[in-house]
Write a protein that binds this DNA or RNA. Structure first.
Lengths: 207, 207
DNA sequence: TAAGTCATGTAATCGGTTACATGATTGC
DNA sequence: GCAATCATGTAACCGATTACATGACTTA
């Protein structure tokens, strides 16, 4: 017997909230608009530029691809290989494309950020300013490395008029620019924070 | 019988990766450095400014407080109330404070963002520029609202020399500034994106 | 011979959400 | 009478991670 319906809510199937939040399938569909990819290749993309705003491990991708195929949103095809394991590559179907285009225009709630580093910054008052400055510099270096990687990708678009980027590259270009601008904002904030921490280190030397 | 140890890894207890990632307990400890709070009050804080970089629902907070207390990192105290349900308030202990101060200086990996909105932007090439512009504007409005809320909080610090903020408010001030600067970066990006989309809408009118 | 890449998966677990329960008080 | 606020929890579920398994080929 199914669980008894709640006092104020009778439902059949998954909750609307869940249906509205399944970004993984759309991230995969989005990647497939650029062409045929295997699960393995999709996993690689999530480690690169796309990783700035979404990520998934291989173990999540393979079952999701199978689900998408069973729903007719993607079509799989086995590809025999020599010297490498055989693979299965997927193409987005017309239905998949329509499904994605619908979803793209639906409003998104503000992202619920979970930033471990900022949780630490929240308690910077507890530690010696000099130690905080060092921790900040460590994090800054990581962000600078990522910025350099994104700038290298951006160079591929260089010279082209941003307004005339081929349609297939419009989304990738816009999200890349978002990534670059957010990292630059972090660096500007880090400068400000360091100035404040230095002033405190000077006025209250380590005990 | 416990599961047989793997080929390359014998372990006892939770994995190191998990131990290094439990930010919720430290977010709670961080909130308690400002003074005694109940689980309910902590949940409220996660809905406000702290929510910019961490969040948790009440159902997660109550068990975590119990765990923190059993580990001696916080101390709970029952408070009888009239006209309201009784509550239990928690104070951070000396051990909890030391534990938090240690963690604050450990390096953090770059945050693995999951931004549903940017997943949509990735596929903006699929839709009419005019529809994309509208979707962008909707999201922009939400960000502007949040910015206004943060600016109101910032006003409380106004006039004070940022370098001379009381130590207890240093972390909160720095994270608030981070939130403000990230939203401003989003707005600057949204301007750029809108310009690009407008240029495309003009050159290729709706079919 | 050890580590790394290509390629796809299963099993156990965990962190977090949704739904629900309870119950007094205050405001519309 | 209905909804909202204050206050604390349990149970079921799900999305995601960790660990592990397999196996051929390449590079140091």
């Amino acid at each position: 017997m199914p669980p008894a319906p709640g006092k104020f809510c009778w439902r059949i199937g998954p909750t609307p909230a869940k249906l509205a939040e399944m970004s993984l399938r759309f991230a995969i569909l989005g990647l497939l608009t650029a062409g045929e990819l295997s699960g393995y290749e999709i996993a690689r993309r999530f480690e690169q530029s796309v990783g700035y705003f979404w990520h998934a491990r291989a173990q999540q991708i393979y079952p999701e691809l199978a689900r998408l195929e069973s729903e007719g949103l993607v079509a799989g095809r086995a590809v025999p290989q020599v010297g490498k394991p055989d693979k299965r590559v997927y193409t987005i179907t017309a239905r998949g494309l329509a499904h994605l285009a619908d979803w793209v225009l639906t409003p998104s709630p503000l992202t619920l950020t979970k930033d471990e580093f900022l949780v630490k910054v929240w308690s910077y008052g507890l530690v010696e300013p000099q130690r905080a400055i060092e921790a900040l510099a460590t994090h800054r270096r990581q962000q600078e490395e990522r910025l350099a990687a994104y700038r290298a990708i951006e160079a591929a678009f260089e010279g082209a008029d941003p307004a005339a980027v081929p349609t297939a590259f419009l989304g990738p270009y816009l999200t890349l620019r978002a990534g670059i601008q957010f990292i630059e904002a972090f660096l500007a904030w880090a400068d400000e924070a360091e100035r404040i921490l230095r002033a405190r280190a000077a006025s209250r030397p380590a005990p």
